[in-house]
Write a protein that binds this DNA or RNA. Structure first.
Length: 265
DNA sequence: AAACGTTACAACCGCCCATAG
DNA sequence: ACTATGGGCGGTTGTAACGTT
């Protein structure tokens, strides 16, 4: 299988070399050519850029470069704001991973931006939850209720337990239960778990982990504390598979303060 | 200062769909 | 009806920059 894939790739590379397709980072000169083309013909006929010999890039590559970097009014180098994060969370719950659709609701953001943002966010969440769940007992009492969570293959994928629906309706009320439903290959977190446990289904990273601006140490300390407070208190009250659960929240989370700190927030 | 880990972002890949011939 | 082609989209990978140890 691996060999076949390798062969395929080699073949493709050879073909690319033969047809002189350029890949990798775009040069300023290439950008200029692309901009000029768009100026003349508009953002279309991407493949003609190559057929005319203007660039040795595929039409797809040209389009992507334009959409993600060169088109006007892009918020490049700008972190997602609280409001933008709120919108992404809301729309992701509504549409699922329809990044282009979600991006359409955000001015100056591309589908790639949204996708990357979401992905980073998920990774951060996964890390936090791994860190907290992998700690030693008695804190592991909480992890025991999440046996599936800590044994998941890396990297675990996180999703809210609501199945994304394509209806125009907003998810206004969560029907998820506790403990969170663990599905085959991803961890399912109800919005309440990640959020304020019922208070606000659209909880933000900013809410839980602090704003992107300011001291990263504070984000971490505050973030971890907040997450533990929010998910932890509920965890303590939850029941594991054996119907066996810690009696006292405080006992369960006594040692959480000793947890190693993620290096960055 | 160096090694290592993490994050954000750019770009590519593969699949799918629409459309023209 | 079929095929080729272009374009859109989501998933994945590579890497530069930055932070931590």
């Amino acid at each position: 299988m691996e060999a076949a894939t390798g062969k395929k790739k080699t073949k493709k590379r050879k073909k690319d070399v033969e047809s002189r397709v350029r890949k990798g980072t775009w040069k300023a000169e290439e950008d200029q050519v692309l901009l000029k083309h768009v100026e003349q013909y508009g953002p279309r006929e991407w493949s003609s850029i190559r057929s005319k010999g203007l660039l040795q890039r595929t039409g797809k590559s040209c389009r992507l470069r334009w959409v993600n970097k060169l088109q006007p009014n892009l918020k490049t180098g700008c972190k997602f704001t609280e409001e933008e994060e709120r919108v992404v969370i809301e729309l992701q719950a509504r549409y699922g991973n329809k990044w282009a659709k979600i991006a359409a609701h955000l001015t100056g953001r591309t589908d790639n931006d949204v996708k990357n943002f979401w992905s980073s966010r998920q990774k951060r969440l996964a890390r936090i939850l791994r860190t907290t769940s992998c700690s030693s007992s008695p804190a592991s009492a909480s992890a025991s209720a999440y046996g599936n969570l800590i044994s998941l293959p890396e990297p675990p994928m996180l999703r809210t337990s609501e199945t994304p629906v394509e209806t125009g309706d907003l998810v206004t009320e969560s029907s998820s239960s506790f403990p969170p439903k663990i599905e085959e290959d991803f961890i399912a977190f109800s919005p309440e778990m990640l959020a304020g446990l019922g208070d606000d289904p659209n909880i933000l990273f900013f809410d839980v982990f602090g704003s992107a601006a300011g001291d990263p140490d504070d984000h971490h300390q505050l973030g971890e504390q907040k997450l533990l407070e929010k998910t932890g208190s509920k965890l303590g009250g939850g029941e594991n598979e054996d119907g066996d659960f810690p009696a006292d929240d405080d006992d369960v989370f006594d040692e959480l303060d000793d947890l190693p700190s993620p290096s960055k927030w």
